[in-house]
Design a protein around this nucleic acid. Sequence first.
DNA 1: CAGTTGACAGTCC
DNA 2: GGGACTGCCAACT
Length: 129
Amino acid sequence: MDRAESGPEPDSGAEPDFGAAVAEVVRLIPAGHVMTYGDVAAVLGSRAARAVGTVMAREGADLPWWRVVRAGGLPPVRHEARALEHYRAEGTPLVERSSASSASSGSSAWRIDVRRARWSPATDADDPF
DNA sequence: CAGTTGACAGTCC
DNA sequence: GGGACTGCCAACT
């Protein structure tokens, strides 16, 4: 317990302090629920939505990144297909765009029902609605 | 040491 | 209703 705290972290260059916090929150997300990058950043006390994604890109290798989605309920670009399998496996509420109505962005034919899937680490209620 | 990038968000037009 | 710009913060070169 007595340790010279001269240097905050005298070991490996990249100290995942922020990444560790992100990983902590992301791992706390239960199956069937998701959080937006902004929410995760807010929990960390920062508005670094992008930083969350960037750090997760490095530390996220061991994290359920698919439980972290963008605003609007869309999964990370380039990883939507991979995330879709996880969402279906976890039972995450998805909204399928059956009709070919709005295909503006022409990306995924589905999106996450953030209205029900949005979860908060400080909220135990799994269905506030 | 400084500049650039980046798994985004929110607001303005 | 859809598109573009800026703001944010952290990691990489």
